[in-house]
Write a protein that binds this DNA or RNA. Structure first.
Lengths: 343, 343
DNA sequence: GTGAAAGCGCTAACAA
DNA sequence: TTGTTAGCGCTTTCAC
């Protein structure tokens, strides 16, 4: 039995109406659109509401109006420091339009993803921004075809064959920049620690990097590539694997700052120094990237702008407007201390 | 299958009932509690629902039942990597009880705090876990007195004069451990980079540290203390201030790993080495703490357990049960590389 | 400017 | 086991 069921029930506009000596319609109006009632009516209602400790039941309002003024953001792992600024960008844009934003961590779990997605399809939020690596099959079905337009949703990752509005990053171009920088420094033996390759995002980073090496006449062998899941621990493991090779690389492109941190730590423990022995270019430019030693040379992803752009696109969709802006943001290289010419 | 949706509004159980040739009550039952209807009834309903692309309107369900099966977590700044594990702990505990959890970032903004708090008081969630430094006045009023028990809420920080169920950390004991460790190493000149001192949390860390020094006959001057806001940047600034002193400390207690990272970076840029010149004990043990160089000696806060405990306490409250467990968790020192004997 | 009344989509008595 | 029906608290015509 719930506690608030035991205590007195909360008052409704009906109670307020009785106390103020007017109809519930007037109470509703006085509360929601004061200009439509006479000042003294309004005053009476407000007084009564106050005395009764009246709190509007938003569940009822939302149900009645069919709108919740709430947006949701889905992420696979809130532990990734990447998301902090991303959320701030969304929050700011949402606030301007008078929306509240709620975050859900799906833990890359299909059940959770389905649960949270259903909050959109079942009306519990008005729109959804999905920053998940891959859309689950059942979700794709849901948003395919004609029903596509019915649920306002914006993706932050392009996913093959998905017709969902997307605000993405030019990952291919970013991978390219990483390669060009390392090439310019004089490196010729490259390694790569990649994120989950089922994500388009990681595929594109990888392709941009490898294609650019190829153009420079350098092939990027399969064995010089180690997979990770974007966490520190997976970076450590990947570095261990890569430097077990008999001709280890002199330069590394790593798909996230977190993995880079783990990799650099692992190398250090093996007596391999960054950047004098190995150069590292990573991805994201999270908060700690510029504060660790060596400070990370990384691809700066405009996370706040990304969030804001995604939110604006979502809002535009919800109002049936056209897309308000470009949908691919560029991420640029920031050179710090983790890269140098090969020794 | 989803065809009719594009032309008209979404279908309701009424539509399903008509299509299946039964009453809406049976549809409701078949969907919600299959065991209460005959198998063939159930099959008919499911088929009809499927054909119509029926999705239950959760807004209506929640409104009708008065329950949302949703918990909310309020944090002042999601950018703090501290929260990652904390959320996971909550999510896990919530999931066991069949609740969804949503996160809101209040940005320490009073308006936002009020907005999100009202989601609880207006019924949009069933319970709330607040991990904010300080409760805003208006919120305190709301939860004072008789209405206190009406809204299930759990705080993660003790706040003076607040009668809200709390799961906290023994910050005083942690501050004490930091001091004892540094003292044992032989340090005698101490500095401290503190978090916002209006938070009880930071006050307690500070008091535990200072009291322990005092017991050892060492006074901790006001000038050896610099304020920060728990971010990397504020750690840098605080370190700059502290080492402008003409007798700088040989050991630092810093209220968060993030600030410690900033401080260590600042010191490094001044040619001051950690730990050979200065020892650093920080707080939290976030993900990167063990991966940076030097690895941080820090107070390990059991974040996942904290989240889980807070969630269980909330759930217990919502069911009117007694508190299921102790409400103060201990945080213990983890010695790594950032502390050493003074030179 | 205000009130009466009709629901929004669903659940849960209560009947049958 | 199934159907009928009365609302949950609010917004919103539509009269007055």
């Amino acid at each position: 039995m719930l506690k608030n069921e035991l205590t007195s029930k909360r008052s409704t506009i009906r109670d307020v109406a009785k106390a103020a000596g007017m109809s519930i319609a007037s109470v509703s109006r006085a509360l929601k659109d004061p200009s439509t009632v006479r000042p003294d009516t309004r005053a009476k209602v407000l007084t009564a509401a106050n005395e009764l400790g009246f709190q509007v039941n938003r569940l009822a309002v939302d149900f009645r109006t069919g709108r919740t003024h709430t947006l949701m953001v889905l992420v696979p792992n809130i532990a990734n420091p990447f998301y902090s600024e991303f959320f701030k960008g969304i929050e700011e844009a949402a606030r301007l339009a008078n929306y509240l934003v709620l975050i859900a961590d799906t833990a890359s779990d299909a059940f959770r993803e389905a649960d949270y997605f259903s909050m959109l399809t079942s009306g519990k939020c008005d729109g959804l921004i999905a920053h998940i690596g891959r859309f689950p099959e059942n979700v794709l079905e849901l948003f395919a075809g004609e029903s596509a337009g019915r649920f306002p949703i914006v993706s932050c990752n392009r996913d093959a064959g998905v017709e969902i509005p997307t605000v993405g990053i030019d990952n291919y171009g970013a991978g390219r920049q990483a390669a060009l920088h390392l090439l310019a420094l004089g490196h010729r033996r490259f390694g790569q620690i990649v994120g989950p390759m089922e994500y388009e995002e990681c595929k594109a980073k990888h392709a941009g990097f490898v294609d650019t090496l190829l153009e420079a006449g350098i092939s990027h062998a399969e064995e010089c590539q180690a997979p990770g899941d974007l966490t520190i621990a997976s970076g450590r493991a990947a570095a261990r694997k890569l430097f077990g090779l008999h001709t280890p690389p002199s330069a590394l492109f790593i798909h996230s700052d977190e993995m880079a941190l783990g990799a650099i730590q692992e190398l250090r423990s093996c007596g391999i120094n960054v950047p004098s022995d190995v150069s590292v270019v990573s991805f994201d430019d999270v908060n700690f990237a510029s504060a660790v030693a060596p400070a990370l040379t990384t691809i700066r992803v405009p996370r706040r702008e990304w969030g804001a752009a995604a939110c604006r696109l979502l809002l535009a969709h919800m109002e049936g407007k056209e897309a308000p802006e470009a949908r691919t943001l560029t991420a640029d290289l920031v050179v710090r201390e983790s890269t140098a010419a090969p020794s």
